[in-house]
């Protein structure tokens, strides 16, 4: 009985700590600026959707959302294809001078280097190529980051799949690549999904490079666009909180939808 009470206590405490801040964000987004700063109400007394409407009519959030979706889709899709092939080559082939292992280690090292290290040179590169403030500039950057991650994740998934199945397919006349595409890839689908989900999450949420590489609604992503509302002396809390909800909603919804895969992606690598 006592332990049951303790459980309920801990459960409620955790739920409150996680959910109260989110409640406050949503609740603020439904208030007018006057109600927020002058009345300090604990819940919206006069609920309004004006803040949300303003985001899309006056503050270009439609463009930010489009940019985010396009950039995330292409950088994850390209990275998945290139990353899966690379991971397969590293997992399966034995090249001269153990080249495949060296490439794998090299990509892993690149993954450990914090992204800030190349912030400035990537900015200079995009400046030189005229890719500042474009989709292509962001897509190229995010794709590269995602590839190192995809290769690292997918390699271990491919290793778990027995070689015999591919050999059987090749005995039956499939080419090596055909065996990869028709046998191994479908078997690795759950791993591919976990990898894709995690990449989508990280890419959609990325801020630092979006901050440095974009400057107008032409290419600004959601997090970058949201940050434009911040930093003035007089903070527009109403718009900011509505932007927070809009910015977080797609990704939270997506994460809850694919929860099971997500947890695997997050904890993989740490626990063998």
């Amino acid at each position: 009985m006592n332990s049951r009470l303790a459980r309920i206590g801990v459960m409620s405490a955790v739920l409150a700590i996680v959910l109260l801040p989110i409640y406050w964000l949503v609740s603020t987004s439904l208030k007018s600026n006057r109600e927020i700063t002058q009345e300090g109400t604990l819940y919206p007394h006069v609920p309004t959707l004006d803040n949300y409407i303003r985001l899309f009519t006056e503050k270009q959030f439609g463009a930010y959302l489009t940019n985010s979706l396009v950039v995330t889709f292409f950088s994850v899709a390209i990275a998945l294809v290139a990353g899966a092939m690379g991971a397969y080559a590293i997992a399966r082939f034995r090249l001269p001078f153990a080249m495949e292992r060296k490439v794998g280690l090299f990509l892993l090292t690149l993954r450990i280097v914090p992204p800030v290290v190349i912030l400035i040179p990537v900015y200079l590169l995009m400046l030189k190529l005229g890719l500042l403030d474009t989709w292509l500039g962001l897509i190229a950057t995010y794709t590269a980051f995602n590839i190192t991650f995809c290769v690292w994740m997918m390699e271990s998934f491919f290793r778990e799949i027995p070689v015999d199945l591919e050999e059987a397919a090749m005995v039956d006349g499939d080419s090596r690549f055909g065996a990869f595409r028709r046998i191994t890839l479908p078997l690795a689908a759950p791993g591919l999904a976990a990898t894709a989900i995690f990449a989508v999450l990280v890419t959609f949420n990325e801020f630092l490079f979006a901050l440095a590489l974009t400057a107008t609604p032409r290419a600004m992503t959601m997090p970058r666009g949201t940050a434009t509302l911040i930093g003035r002396i007089d903070t527009d809390w109403a718009s900011m909180s509505a932007a927070g909800v809009i910015g977080a909603l797609p990704i939270v919804f997506f994460a809850l939808l694919v929860q099971r895969h997500l947890v695997r992606g997050l904890t993989m690598g740490a626990v063998k």
Binding site: L110, I118, A144
Partner: peptide
């Protein structure tokens, strides 16, 4: 095949990560 499969990923990484790292 191994080289063909490694190439796309490596090329992108070399261009967008390794070159900037060196340039940095």
């Amino acid at each position: 095949l191994p080289y063909l499969m490694l190439a796309p990923g490596l090329l992108i990484v070399l261009g967008v990560l390794v070159y900037p790292l060196w340039d940095g």
